[in-house]
Write a protein that binds this DNA or RNA. Structure first.
Lengths: 211, 211, 211, 211
DNA sequence: CATGAATGAGAGTTCATTCAT
DNA sequence: GATGAATGAACTCTCATTCAT
């Protein structure tokens, strides 16, 4: 595949990505992609033979090195709380750049029973849980964090993030909600008497009028 | 609408539900439903004119009174921790009966930008957050719970649950994972020195070999 | 399938037959048939889902009771030579009505390795050989015919007829050729000293100029 | 055309032949041939611009000198019965090497009305009939054979052979069937009282239970 | 000569939707 | 109300053929 081919392939991935972001997976057809790229019907098939293949390629590229920064910081023995902050910031960035978000398309692809995409998602999720768990355990040993069950805490963080993703993809969420959740997750790992600094915002507790 | 009509409508909803559970939303066609019901093509259109309408009806029925138990317990001033336990148990039940789960179909429907389903999901989510928030605030006032930000804690719980739902729908999850997350959520609302009772399991912390 | 449907099915078979006669099997598409029938693209699929199915139906109808006349005459103990004459006349009729001949299409369908059409052709061929063989054996016993090997004679007749069919379908043949072959087959079953009557024509032997 | 070109052309013919043998004519595409040869799409068009052209070339090469042996034996005044034997043996060989047989492809090509292939087939057939006819006439003059109509006898032989070919291509035949037919053809040209030698086999007449 | 990316026509197939009965 | 035949739009996929390199 020559240089021209590489460019064309990139064009396909770029245009297809836009479509997947907008419409999810199942509502994008090969024809849509052909038209978005301005290429011929048959031309697309020289590169990909289904929308699933295209989306898989996009997601593979996206996920390559996605959590690399976190793993790297972890390896370098940075302060656990600091690493957690970096991680949450990175996640927030991904969540707020929803113009680029393929969450829904990715879930749709994965939900096709026989599809290997679900394995990829699962693996990525588990890897993240593992790293977070080790991070929290280290934080606990260092006396920086408090957790009775680092694994459960890590899972909690990751499922919350997935929840933010799917709600973002299906209903839309506000930045404020991300902040709330992340602050809650962060604070939950601190010793109660500590005064945390990393994650605060100015949300006010609503007054409840019962009793 | 006569009695016969009611029965036929119920037949349509029942059969369509099975299809949506199995395939999600976008992969179910009017033809599929017609065939599953054993009725005529034209016959279906007397009741519904699109798959979206049918799914909306199903989801509306499902959600009617879904959190009613929680709200009722709340109104009756049961102990906040007890109510929370009930709530989490109910959620777990919903998550584990994945044979009946319309999560993916529901998210797909919602992700159609112009669709009112996203509003319904959003509203249901916000209602749940509000109730949880009030519950937590009450728990705090009663000295039963600890939370620096009941709203954020409530949001955290709900997003975690959404995360469990979407992961369940797209990759599958194990009961153990639900337990981990729910225990973590529950424990996070207790005073550290308390010995919680409601949510425990036998998970072991993996030993990390750093330093 | 109501009365309307039966008529439409007949229309499809009639129009498709014309196409198969003209173009053979592989050059007829579902689209061709749709257009020949003046029906909609999807409409054809209500009745048949491939050209092979349609052709099989046509051939099945055609072959139903095709050699019934011969078998009947055989059962009624008509004179063997007379029956043979009738048989050859019927075959000639089929060969000369080449406007209606599906020979080529039938062979094409059969040549698709996995196709049951080859079994049908084979069976029809074998059945015909069997009946002819019994006929010749009877003719021999009656002293009307001469054959050292009735089975081989019967096979010879049938393969000659297949040869006429395929040459007719691929190159075209003249009535005169059919007569020549049939006369030769007929004469070959007579005692040499007999003067045959049934099959003669006015062909002249070309003079050979060797030696 | 240089030496390289000749080799490539031969490659194309060899690979295409395999395909035509396997699939007949109409089911072989230019793409199939390109892939079988491992050459470029454009490259094939430098030599041939359609599958029909390729098949014609293959058939032309095949038929060149195919009946040359027979014609040569005829010219050398060999004994007519001996020549006939040789001819039938050669035909049997061609029929049994069905791995190499292009019968079906050839008939398909010929059945395309506008195609010159039918003319070639026709000519080859007629040539064979003419030679056989002269052979039989000579056999009759020599007192070696008996035939009331050498032309009809010759045509009978050739149509039988075509019948064996097409049945072989579409349904498959057994060697035994070839033997039966050839023996019958051979015996039919002998004087009844003669004891033939060339074509015999051990087939038994089935006993018929009528009367 | 040779390549192979690109094109575009066209076949196959499925379905939402309508409508005469 | 109910049916199901019919329509036609839309999508998938394949290939013959061309052409810049």
């Amino acid at each position: 595949m020559g240089e021209r081919s590489v460019k064309k392939k990139q064009l396909i991935l770029d245009k297809a990505r836009e479509l997947f972001v907008t419409r999810g997976f199942k509502d994008v057809t090969m024809k849509d992609i052909v038209e978005a790229c301005g290429i011929s019907r048959g031309g697309l098939y020289l590169y990909y033979s289904s929308t699933g293949e295209i989306l898989k390629d996009i997601l593979a590229i996206d996920s390559a090195g996605s959590d690399e920064a976190l793993a790297e910081a972890f390896r370098q023995n940075a302060a656990p709380l600091k690493i957690l902050e970096l991680f949450l910031e990175a996640q927030k960035k991904e969540l707020t750049s929803s113009k680029e978000a393929l969450f829904m398309a990715s879930y749709e692809l994965a939900s096709r029973k026989s599809d290997s995409e679900s394995i990829r998602i699962r693996k990525q999720f588990d890897d993240a849980v593992t790293v977070l768990e080790m991070l929290i355990a280290r934080g606990v040993r260092h006396g920086e964090m408090y957790s009775e069950d680092p694994h459960a805490s890590a899972a909690n963080i990751m499922f919350s993030i997935e929840g933010l993703k799917i709600m973002s993809a299906s209903c839309g969420i506000q930045e404020r909600e991300i902040d709330d959740v992340f602050r809650s997750l962060y604070t939950g790992l601190l010793y109660p008497e500590w005064e945390e600094e990393g994650w605060t915002d100015e949300s006010e507790l609503p007054e409840e009028e019962d009793e």
